[in-house]
Computed example of a mutant assay.
Amino acid sequence: MARKCTPTYSIEFSLNILAWQKHRIEKKFKIARTVYNSCLGEALKRHKSVKATKEYHTLLKGPKSKERDHRLSEIRLANGFSEYGLHDFVKLVQHKFKGNIGSLEAQKLATRAFQTVEKLHFGKARKVHFKKFDDDISVENKSN
């Protein structure tokens, strides 16, 4: 059965805010970019450590089976290459900025970074990009 797509729209409004509020928002976005980039770097390290494993390469060349997939998953987990492994990493990073960015916001940034590297890991992307200073970034929370 085909899914019907509902069109979505976004609208931008300029905000009339005080200077201190603008600085606070800019600081939060700067910290979010820093947290995202550090999570992306850590996820890339873990991705490379998984790919460097000889057993991983051997299993990839072998015939597909549930046992093979289970063993590949175990290797990824042993190297900390999982979304929740990255959540553990982001706890330490977020603690430095706990006055400006919450733990759930940091976990969401870690999830986005992991999903980006996961695409690279499974061959759905060719490379990943770190957020530059002037790049836009959005900050969201895991809860309402």
Score class of each variant (00 low, 15 high):
residue 7 P to S: 06
residue 99 G to H: 15
residue 77 L to C: 10
residue 132 K to C: 02
residue 47 H to D: 10
residue 91 K to E: 12
residue 100 N to P: 03
residue 23 H to T: 09
residue 42 E to C: 14
residue 22 K to E: 08
residue 73 S to W: 07
residue 79 N to D: 06
residue 23 H to D: 13
residue 5 C to L: 13
residue 92 L to I: 07
residue 117 V to N: 02
residue 44 L to N: 02
residue 62 G to I: 04
residue 133 F to N: 06
residue 61 K to Q: 12
residue 9 Y to R: 11
residue 131 K to E: 11
residue 70 H to T: 15
residue 16 N to R: 14
residue 98 K to V: 06
residue 7 P to K: 12
residue 67 E to G: 01
residue 33 R to K: 15
residue 17 I to E: 06
residue 103 S to E: 15
residue 136 D to C: 04
residue 31 I to M: 01
residue 2 A to K: 10
residue 50 V to G: 15
residue 78 A to M: 08
residue 117 V to A: 03
residue 123 G to F: 14
residue 108 K to I: 00
residue 14 S to T: 13
residue 8 T to A: 09
residue 7 P to F: 00
residue 63 P to N: 08
residue 50 V to Y: 04
residue 47 H to R: 11
residue 102 G to R: 08
residue 49 S to G: 02
residue 55 E to L: 14
residue 40 L to W: 03
residue 107 Q to L: 03
residue 77 L to T: 14
residue 125 A to F: 04
residue 122 F to L: 07
residue 48 K to Q: 10
residue 18 L to A: 14
residue 3 R to V: 03
residue 16 N to L: 13
residue 119 K to L: 11
residue 135 D to V: 02
residue 87 H to I: 01
residue 76 R to K: 15
residue 43 A to S: 15
residue 57 H to I: 06
residue 80 G to R: 01
residue 99 G to R: 03
residue 49 S to L: 03
residue 55 E to D: 04
residue 68 R to W: 11
residue 59 L to P: 01
residue 117 V to Y: 02
residue 106 A to F: 12
residue 21 Q to S: 05
residue 96 K to D: 08
residue 110 A to K: 04
residue 117 V to W: 01
residue 120 L to F: 12
residue 136 D to W: 10
residue 61 K to H: 08
residue 3 R to D: 07
